[in-house]
């Protein structure tokens, strides 16, 4: 049986070929009475219909939580959730927070220090002292 080269299988990467939004669900909680929910109530009335129309892949749930500050909770593909308290915010500020939740991957935030991050192997390979043209001398 002739020797076959190893076949590299393409690893799935979100955004290469297809992009699946990682935010799968957004919960909007408000209070009918409290003043801190005024902006949230305006947002639900004025901004949310357009947002829901633009993002049909996100499941949206609106429910009251009497006597509590308004919260937007994002649920992600990796099983994590991200809640943001939007007390006293106006509707446009809440829209920014919601788009932030929508675009988040669900991962914990990490500091990025390297300019490039890749999952691909290096084309050049790993250097070895035994495989050069000449023996490596120290």
């Amino acid at each position: 049986m002739p020797l076959q080269a190893l076949r590299t299988i393409a690893k799935p990467q979100n955004g290469v070929g297809a992009f699946i939004l990682q935010c799968k669900r957004l919960d909007f909680h408000y209070c009918d009475w409290a003043g801190s929910s005024r902006g949230m109530n305006d947002f639900i009335k004025n901004q949310l219909p357009a947002f829901a129309r633009q993002n049909p892949s996100i499941e949206i749930s609106v429910s009251p939580r009497p006597g509590r500050h308004p919260v937007v909770i994002g649920h992600y593909m990796n099983g994590r959730i991200k809640p943001i308290c939007v007390r006293k915010l106006d509707q446009l500020q809440i829209l920014n927070k919601v788009s932030l939740l929508k675009e988040a991957s669900g991962e914990k935030l990490k500091r990025v220090t390297k300019p490039v991050k890749s999952v691909n192997e290096s084309v050049r390979g790993v250097w070895s002292p035994f495989h050069g043209k000449e023996m490596y001398k120290v």
Partner: peptide
Amino acid sequence: KPKKLAQDPKLDQLKSMGNVQVHATRR
């Protein structure tokens, strides 16, 4: 009686969308 947000006519459009659920009570 003070009007509840869930009963607001502006939310009718929202309720008719496929990906939106509007609840009148706490979940």
